[in-house]
Design a protein around this nucleic acid. Structure first.
Ligand SMILES: [Zn+2]
Ligand SMILES: [Zn+2]
Ligand SMILES: [Zn+2]
Ligand SMILES: [Zn+2]
Lengths: 172, 172
DNA sequence: GTTATTTATGTTATATCGTAACGCGTCAAG
DNA sequence: CTTGACGCGTTACGATATAACATAAATAAC
């Protein structure tokens, strides 16, 4: 079983090999840094690792706390700069609804996925479908807008949390 | 010429009768307030009017300044409360990318349109197409997410601004 | 190898956005 | 006339984000 390109898009909301997620993103980060001549410095790498601990989106200040504990700088720009770097490199995404950041799970350098956010566990999945791309393009075309960036975020409750809620309701 | 239901969706990026925009939204606001037993108080109404001066999204503090000048309260909650009211009533929308608010241009009470935002003139158009709704539903379904809210924002350059940019470039 | 240049990290300070909590005034129900 | 709900105003604070500057590390030039 050595299908390399198996997991184009992992889905955090369902069972998956998360170590694989983390490892593959880190690997991509290193390769990409080498190729593009940018530096994956200790802070930057560490921030990516922190984001990769789970698929939960983290606020900049939450990341900063972790950095401070580990001997990095204690002031906001330290976190924001590392996060900005990761976002620029397509290694992390900003989730606007949560004012938070999540590691990117795709292997593509530049992409603008839609985010699926569970309101309860705050995990974030990304999805990039032709259907959505077409819908966006159609909207832009209809209004003569030259599209530069787009944000698609879907907030709801994931299957796991929905099940948990149901169980809780029956307990009462 | 008395086609009442002509303008389901005005497009701020193109020539249109803006007085009509403003008047029709205010009319809807009044009707709706009566019907739902909520109060369109002076501050609330004034905030809606301010938003309706153009299709540009305005930050809460920008609205607040205007209110202060006109003798209303000078503190943030004054603006935020009025804006929250308008958003709840579906009379205004929050544009997350801009941390700003824009008057709603639709006649529908509850809807979640996509926003088209011009980066240069900061005007905002709304659009609600079946195609986009389906794309959102498909994404949610594919990930077993029970959808509660969604955000679709497209940032770019509107036709008018694109033209202006071109002209400027040729001048040089 | 030493120097110059760029890039990254850290700091202080401040800007920007948003909310909690409380008191007062208004108005309508009882 | 009291009571209770609601809206508006305040003070105070919390949360998010960036500007500006000093230092240090890495890279490039000589
Ligand atoms: Zn994973
Ligand atoms: Zn969940
Ligand atoms: Zn208009
Ligand atoms: Zn424009």
């Amino acid at each position: 079983m050595s299908h390399e390109s198996k997991s184009e898009t992992q889905d955090p909301f369902h069972a998956h090999d998360h170590d694989h997620c983390a490892a593959s993103v880190l690997r991509r980060a290193e390769e990409q840094a080498r190729q593009e001549g940018v530096r994956l410095t200790p802070v930057r790498r560490r921030v990516l690792e922190i984001l990769l601990e789970s698929h939960r989106a983290m606020g900049a200040y939450e990341v900063l706390e972790r950095l401070a504990l580990e001997g990095f700088g204690k002031q906001p720009p330290v976190a924001y700069r590392a996060l900005d770097f990761l976002v620029e490199q397509g290694l992390a995404h900003r989730v606007r609804r949560l004012n938070a950041y999540a590691a990117c799970l795709s292997n593509q350098r530049d992409h603008t996925p839609a985010f699926l956010i569970c309101r309860l566990c705050e995990q974030v999945a990304e999805a990039d479908t032709p259907q959505m791309r077409e819908a966006l393009a159609a909207l832009a075309a209809a209004h003569d807008l030259t599209i530069e960036r787009s944000t698609v975020e879907i907030l709801g409750i994931c299957a796991r949390c929905a099940k948990a809620e149901q169980a809780k309701a029956q307990d009462v």
